[in-house]
C-alpha cells in the first residue's frame, strides 16, 4: 500500500512537466504563471518559423538515412557475433559494438570531428561538414543499439529451421533471406525505430560534427531554450508528444489484441 502511494507520486513526477508543456502551449500569455486565455498563436508562430521547419526537415532526413544504415550494419554485426563462431579479431569486434553504448557523447562527438578534420587534410574527404558527417556519426552509435536488440533476438531464436533449410541444400544467403530475416523482422523494426529516435534526439554529437550550414532540430531548440522558456517550443513539444503518444497507443492496442487472441 505504501509503495502504491509512492508510485502515484512517481507517475505524477513523470507526467506533470509534460502536462504543463502541453497546457502552456495553448496559453496566450508568454508567462507560465499567467493564464492569458486559450490560443493557438504559438502553433502559428511555430509553423511560420522557417529556421525550425528547415531544421526539422534536416533532422528527419538524417534520422531516416542513419537509422537505415544502422539497421543494415547492426544486423550484420549481430549475425557475426551470434552465428559466425570464432574469427580473428572477435574480441576487438565485440568491444567495438558494445563500447558506443557506454561512451559519453562529448567524447564520441569530439573524436569524430577530429577524425573528419584530419581525413580532410590527408585525403580531401569529407569536404567540410554537414549532413553526411552527422549521418556517419549517428549510424555508428545506432549500429551498437541495433546490434544489441538483434543479437538478443537471434540468441532466443530456434536454430533448427535454419539448419533444416541448409541441410536441404539452401545456400547461406538464401537461408538468411528466406528464414532468418522474416523471423527477426519485428526486432529489426523496433531497432530501426530506436535508432531513428536516438538520431532525432541527439544534440551533443551533432553539434560537434555539423558544419556551419547544417543545424539539426535539437541544435535549434537548444539555442532557443538556453535563453529561457519560449512558447513556440512548447507548441513543438506538444506536437511531438502527440505523435509519439499516438504511436505508442496504437502499438499497445495491437499488442493487447494479439495477446488476447492468443490467450
Amino acid at each position: 500500500m505504501f509503495f502504491r502511494i509512492l508510485s502515484v507520486f512517481g507517475f505524477f513526477f513523470l507526467y506533470a512537466p509534460i502536462a504543463a508543456l502541453v497546457f502552456y502551449s495553448f496559453n496566450a500569455s508568454k508567462l507560465v504563471t499567467v493564464w492569458g486565455g486559450f490560443s493557438t498563436k504559438w502553433y502559428g508562430e511555430l509553423f511560420g518559423d522557417p529556421q525550425i521547419l528547415g531544421a526539422a526537415w534536416i533532422s528527419l532526413k538524417i534520422a531516416f538515412i542513419s537509422a537505415s544504415i544502422s539497421v543494415v550494419l547492426g544486423t550484420l554485426a549481430a549475425l557475426i557475433m551470434v552465428r559466425f563462431g570464432r574469427f580473428k579479431g572477435r574480441t576487438l569486434f565485440s568491444g567495438m559494438i558494445t563500447a558506443p553504448l557506454v561512451m559519453p557523447e562529448v567524447i564520441t562527438g569530439l573524436s569524430l570531428l577530429m577524425l573528419f578534420i584530419s581525413l580532410q587534410g590527408l585525403i580531401g574527404w569529407p569536404v567540410g561538414r554537414g549532413l553526411s558527417t552527422i549521418v556517419i556519426a549517428h549510424s555508428t552509435f545506432g549500429l551498437a543499439f541495433v546490434a544489441v536488440i538483434v543479437q538478443s533476438r537471434l540468441v532466443d531464436m530456434d536454430k533448427d529451421i535454419e539448419e533444416a533449410a541448409s541441410d536441404l541444400g539452401a545456400r547461406p544467403v538464401r537461408v538468411f533471406f528466406d528464414i532468418t530475416l522474416p523471423m527477426i523482422l519485428p526486432a529489426l523494426v523496433s531497432a530501426w525505430l530506436l535508432a531513428f529516435t536516438l538520431s532525432l534526439d541527439d544534440l551533443v554529437i551533432a553539434s560537434f560534427v555539423a558544419g556551419p550550414g547544417a543545424s539539426t532540430l535539437p541544435m535549434v531548440i537548444f539555442s532557443k531554450v538556453r535563453l529561457g522558456v519560449s512558447p513556440d517550443i512548447n507548441a513543438l513539444a506538444t506536437i511531438m508528444i502527440g505523435i509519439v503518444g499516438l504511436g505508442i497507443f496504437c502499438a499497445t492496442l495491437v499488442m493487447l489484441r494479439k495477446s488476447s487472441r492468443e490467450g
Binding site: I18, V225, A237, I248
Partner: peptide
C-alpha cells in the same frame, strides 16, 4: 506504456520542461 512513453519523447524537451 506510461513508463515507456516519456522515453520516446525528446530528451531535450523533457529537460526543457523543468525550466518552466
Amino acid at each position: 506504456m506510461l513508463v515507456v512513453l516519456p522515453f520516446w519523447t525528446s530528451f531535450l524537451l523533457r529537460v526543457y520542461a523543468w525550466i518552466g
